[in-house]
Amino acid sequence: MIRRVVWHVVVLAVLAVMLYPILWLVAGSFKPGASIASSVGLWAGSLTLDNYASVLGPAEIPVWRYFVNSTIVAGGAVIGNVVTCSLAAYAFARLRFRLRAPLFGFMLATIMLPQHVVLIPQYTIFQRLGMVDSFWPLVLPKFLATDAFFVFLMVQFIRQLPRDLDEAARIDGCGPIRIFAHITLPLIKPAMITTAIFTFIWTWNDFFTQLIYLSSPDKLTLPLALRMFVDLQESASSFGPMFALSVLSLLPILLFFAAFQRFLVQGLATSGLKG
């Protein structure tokens, strides 16, 4: 009994240290005045909504614009990944074709490929297509299943499903397309949810690709909008609004995480161990 209490106390103490930066951010967004960065504590004696008011207030580009842009990019990436990665994974996991082994090997190899190796030719392609400074370069690749990690995740998931149902359907006269639509698809929902959530969070957080492709003020996403605060940061008065916008930008991630953390943690554990 005592051991258990000690365990909880120790875990909670470590957790408190771990989560302090996040709590400090949230607390800071409600702190008044200029002393936000230098105050260690989480409670400044009074609460204010001024920081949020100043962020959400009228501006040349209203804040909701950045949210809409980030949502378009992340939403497009989610749809693309879920659809095309599950199609490719089904072919790799269940169908026979001559080039299966070499193509699967290539797919696995690209999981580890640093994106920088394809960056400049890809940029050239999108520049020639007139797509730079639009959302296309951020969304289109996801509709071509370029996130090999998720193809692999779904292959692993499909492989562990029993084949009996497929066989039964085949004997009843179903082809691969109907087997996929009526049997595999309903069964891989957990893997699709994992893919969707990870894609959403990673795209929402992505900064590098968005920095490279987006430049017009009205096309900026949240990470790019937040980055503008770095230039202002020498003036202490910008900390409050910066913290407020940071909290707002992390909110969707936290909500998705709270709702789906079971899928994320399980997806991570299975992709890691059964590889």
Binding site: W24, N205, P223, V230, V265
Partner: peptide, 23 residues
């Protein structure tokens, strides 16, 4: 487990990098 995992999801964001810069 979920609480310890949360920083992995948030840590890559610009928002958290800004927090670090301020801290």
């Amino acid at each position: 487990r979920s609480a310890f995992y949360a920083p992995s999801l948030l840590g890559a964001s610009v928002a958290v990098a800004l927090v670090w810069r301020a801290l």
